[in-house]
């Protein structure tokens, strides 16, 4: 994995050949009556084919805004302020609406949060699956037999019986609905699956089944996955790479083992320490203070008011992302002067 070198302006440079997704200095702002809200502010990362990246953050850290921007679905009052999103070398943000429409589902698919509410309650499952297939068919329309076969195959891959095709969403349990949504998302074998908290409303037992299914799907397609969430346990079990978001910025990114064992950014360190485990009972280690409001961010590093290692420079200058350990990058003044 080669990560993008970023300078202060955040312009990306090197791109590895097998990177499916390259995000360069992405900025998504919301225009509100109280000013410009920088929900995603200068995020850069890249993702190799067949790898799983998890993006973690508290509510309001910009992770869902980032997912929406990757899908080209940012709507007013949100707007893309700058940056690039390259999917297999093509800049999604520079595409016209028609091209983006075709790329969505066939190349980049979304498994949304709260799948319970993403299905149309008055349409049978089969129709909801084939909608996207028909819409994206170029040239000859697929025949009814082809479609039926495809629907059956898709349902089988997500672990559902073929009879589900004739059912309405209300006849399915929460876990089954989530599987149907995954079948819809992978109907056209996308290269990148963006899963936005796919199991947030499900019980632990069902959660594991869904994540296993998502893993099988991804391996079967050799696709890449971006998993958005805040359940560190789930992320430790599922992801290859972890990116930590705080107040619209990617403060640290690295391989999953490194992030959990040897976190570098003070926020990541506190986050990992605050995780409860079954091995030992400890006093609760909360992170002191409150997450900042994005409209009124502190000058310099956004985490400085809560940071136990805060220095004078943190309250003045914004830290730059730099490679702290091989493959692991963090934005913190503590690592200044170490290298580069």
């Amino acid at each position: 994995m080669i990560l993008i070198e970023t300078d202060q302006a955040g312009a990306g440079t090197s791109v590895a050949a097998d990177d499916v997704l390259v995000v360069e200095d992405l900025r998504v702002y919301y225009d509100t009556s109280q000013g410009v809200l920088k929900a995603v502010d200068g995020v850069s990362f890249s993702l190799q084919q067949g790898k799983r990246l998890a993006l973690v953050g508290e509510s309001g850290s910009g992770k869902s805004t980032l997912a929406t921007a990757l899908m080209g679905m940012t709507t007013a009052p949100g707007r893309i302020h700058g940056g690039h999103v390259y999917l297999s070398g093509r800049d999604l943000l520079a595409m016209n609406r028609g091209d983006m429409h075709m790329a969505r589902l066939s190349e980049i698919a979304l498994v949304p949060q709260g799948a319970m509410n993403s299905l149309n309650p008055v349409i049978r499952v089969r129709k909801q699956i084939i909608d996207g297939i028909i819409d994206h068919a170029e040239g000859k329309k697929p025949t009814k037999d082809e479609l039926n076969e495809r629907v059956e195959e898709l349902l089988r891959t997500v672990g559902l019986p073929a009879s589900v095709a004739r059912m309405y969403p209300h006849e399915l349990s929460g876990g089954m609905k989530q599987r149907v949504v995954m079948a819809i998302g992978t109907a056209l074998s996308p290269k990148l699956i963006v899963a936005d908290e796919p199991t947030s409303a499900l019980d632990v037992v069902v959660q594991r089944q869904i994540m296993e299914t998502l893993g099988h799907l991804q391996e079967g397609l050799n696709a890449s996955v971006i998993l958005i969430g805040h359940d560190m346990g789930l992320i430790a079990q599922f992801a290859d790479m972890v990116g930590i978001m705080y107040a619209g910025k990617l403060v640290e990114i690295g391989p999953v083992d490194a992030i959990f064992e040897n976190p570098q950014h003070p926020y990541t360190q506190l986050l990992i320490q605050s995780l409860p485990s079954f091995n030992k009972k400890t006093e609760f280690n909360g992170i002191p203070g409150l997450p900042p409001t994005l409209l009124n961010l502190p000058v310099g590093c956004s985490f400085s008011p809560r940071c136990p290692f805060v220095m004078d420079t943190c309250k003045v200058d914004e830290p730059v992302s730099r490679e702290v350990l091989p493959g692991q990058r963090a934005s913190c003044h503590l690592f200044e002067g170490d290298q580069e």
Partner: peptide
């Protein structure tokens, strides 16, 4: 079924 927040402890 509980995912442990440690990549070394397998699910």
């Amino acid at each position: 079924s509980i995912p442990q927040p440690d990549p070394k402890i397998a699910w």
